[in-house]
Simulated assay, not measured.
Amino acid sequence: MFDDISSSSLRVAAAGLAARQSAIANNIANIETPGYRARKVEFEDALAGAIKRGDSPSSVAPSTKSSLEPTRLNGSNVNLDEETLSHIDTTMRYQLTLRALDTKYSMLRDAIKGA
């Protein structure tokens, strides 16, 4: 019931988006740190691939990689504009994912209550 493909996919998406938010916050916090390499979190392709193959979405974990973007004079490659846009996009996706989970669990709650 709680381990169907849609529930598992939504939980993996929420975890991946939360990891991305954390990476964005770290990137922004370290924008002036000499030599700091921005981190990028990826999970969408792995999640889509698992679903297409019929594998369990819960086997997908977000991966964090260092950005290969060019660096500034101090060696940091954090781009504040890019991080800000990514933060907005990730926040909106996270809210949508939570709403979908909430709706799914509300339907289950109503079914259990017999409403």
Rank of each mutant, 00 (worst) to 15 (best):
Q21S: 10
V12R: 00
N27S: 05
A46G: 04
S6F: 11
V41E: 01
S106R: 15
K113N: 08
A50H: 13
G16S: 09
L80D: 10
D110S: 10
S56Q: 05
K65G: 04
R20D: 00
G114Y: 04
D81Q: 10
M1D: 08
A15H: 10
R11H: 10
A15G: 12
T91I: 04
L80K: 03
L108H: 07
K113P: 00
L73K: 08
G16C: 08
S22A: 13
A14P: 09
T64C: 01
R37L: 12
L17R: 11
R93I: 00
S7T: 14
S56K: 10
K52G: 04
L96Y: 10
S9F: 01
D110K: 09
V41D: 01
V12W: 05
T91Y: 02
L101C: 07
Y36R: 05
E82G: 05
A100V: 11
L101S: 06
S59G: 12
R72S: 11
D81T: 10
A15T: 11
L80S: 09
N79T: 04
D45K: 15
S59H: 11
R72E: 07
P57I: 03
S67Y: 06
V12Q: 00
G16H: 14
T33N: 02
A61D: 06
A115Y: 07
Y105C: 03
H87W: 14
L17C: 05
S76N: 13
S8R: 15
K40T: 13
M1W: 02
A100K: 05
K113L: 09
G35V: 10
L10C: 02
N30A: 08
A19V: 03
S9T: 15
T64I: 15
P34W: 09
D89R: 12
F43N: 00
E44T: 06
N77C: 02
D81V: 05
A23M: 03
A25G: 09
D3S: 15
Q95E: 12
P62K: 04
I24F: 10
T84E: 05
A25S: 15
H87L: 13
P62L: 02
K65H: 13
Q21P: 01
A15Q: 11
S67R: 02
A61S: 15
V60C: 03
I112A: 15
L10S: 00
I51K: 03
E82C: 01
G16M: 09
I88Y: 14
R93H: 09
I28S: 06
L80P: 02
R99S: 13
S7I: 12
D4P: 04
R109T: 11
Q21V: 06
L17H: 10
N30G: 07
K104F: 09
A115F: 07
A18G: 12
S86T: 13
N79A: 08
Y105H: 13
I31L: 12
I5S: 03
D102F: 04
A46C: 05
